[in-house]
Design a protein around this nucleic acid. Structure first.
Lengths: 238, 238
DNA sequence: ATGATCTTATTTGTATACAACAGTCATATT
DNA sequence: AATATGACTGTTGTATACAAATAAGATCAT
């Protein structure tokens, strides 16, 4: 199965071969693994094999293990000797505190060191608007997830406070899987519509140059999204 | 020089020998190294030797490197092949954003999931008050730094929001070295007095059960502390 | 049949040897 | 004399062999 990867032009192994130093190689492995985890290529609760991944990436276990260790510190993996490396499962209750914090941080994103490069932001959010449009006409699970990730990163540009960005990113990757996990029980079209409206609302605020309004809108949507997730879960368990 | 460590009763090597699993061993090495860095045992800009530390700890480089990699992710170390492992230097300007964020997070600490175990808090902050008293009578650089660290952890107890605690802790360890670095140019007694007053103010608020007031006080002191650091630096450079 | 114990397979953790890299110093060449 | 070049030294990065731990299955006794 991994032969498929090895023969692809932009495979991880190839990219690793082109990398110039250890730091770059680490970054490639780390972001690839994180992407697979939060796109549910590696499902919550599933087991990973260091050897299999190392083979696929064309490296030994040593450098791969560094990336795995960081992902463990991020709360996305859990390793135990004799057992294996497991993708952490996610529970809405446990994520409640993370969501609370993320909401507050989003408000800070509009308030702390607001970005000065307004023209870049306009382009960026116009692109987001376009992607939202095309997603709306053809709702698709993976594209939805991908846009969610990319929109998050666009939103991060609103602040120039780097530590705030780092912190927000970490928390985002702890929570973003919950959507893909629960979306099969929800109506994809509806969720896509709601999300696209959010993107448009925020893009409008950016157009007006009102970063704080954009942040508060984002915060409100995050809050509502969490409530929808909870309602869905309650409906399912009853 | 490392023989001293090896023969001490509670040496890291001994503690590592008693540890039951890899996770515990990692935790011991990680916290020990972090402590040495933020107590300036390993000064900013100094170079560490993986081999020397591994020898002192009585382990091979492999498990040690995991701890070093996490500390690098924390922003306390920086490794480069062929060069070495360097303790990151700290600059007040670069820490400005971290301080800004920490101030906001402190306010959240009093607002998000306030701790319900009030009796524990009372004991904890009374102990802090006592330590502050004894430090005031005999100002001492290391005890000052140690109390600063422990008081931070006590303050963390005010919130039950675990992600907030994690985030705050990481940011704290990014900034706490700046005091030890700049205190030689300042008056230790004065700084100790100011810090002890802060502890007393916050302990008073806790006694009244007003967690939010405690958090706001802390935020105010953090802000004033940063301003004092900046003033000191300006005076020095002029 | 059931329970306990031993064996075995699989996995991560650790130790170690070697490769890759950066800096330094000496040396040769212009 | 200046500069380029090469070997040498010390460092982290990587590969690999082996140790330790866990889980599952087989075997045996009851």
């Amino acid at each position: 199965m991994s032969e498929v990867h090895e023969n692809e032009a932009g495979s991880v192994a190839n990219r690793l071969g082109d990398a110039e130093n250890a730091q770059e190689r680490f970054e490639i492995m780390y972001s690839e693994l994180r992407d697979r985890i939060c796109m549910l290529v590696y499902a919550p609760g599933s087991q990973l094999s260091e050897e299999a991944i190392a083979d696929e990436f064309g490296v030994s276990r040593s450098p791969l293990r560094k990336a795995l260790k960081i992902l463990e510190a991020d709360g996305l993996l859990q390793s135990q000797q004799g057992v294996g490396t497991l993708v952490t499962d996610i529970d809405l209750e446990e994520l409640s505190q993370v969501y609370q914090l993320r909401m507050e941080l989003n408000e800070l994103t509009g308030r702390l060191s607001p970005s000065s490069a307004q023209s870049n932001l306009l382009e960026l959010f116009d692109a987001m608007r376009n992607r939202a449009d095309s997603l709306r006409t053809q709702p698709n699970r993976d594209n939805f997830a991908r846009l969610n990730i990319d929109f998050f990163h666009a939103f991060q540009e609103l602040t120039e406070n780097l530590p705030l960005r780092d912190v927000s990113e970490k928390l985002f990757y702890q929570t973003c899987r919950i959507w893909l996990k629960l979306i099969p029980n929800m109506d994809l079209s509806t969720e896509v519509d709601i999300f696209c409206s959010e993107i448009e609302d925020i893009a409008d605020a950016i157009s007006l140059g009102d970063l704080q309004a954009a942040a508060l809108t984002r915060r409100a949507h995050l809050s509502m999204g969490f409530i929808r997730l909870k309602k869905q879960k309650d409906r399912q368990s009853s």
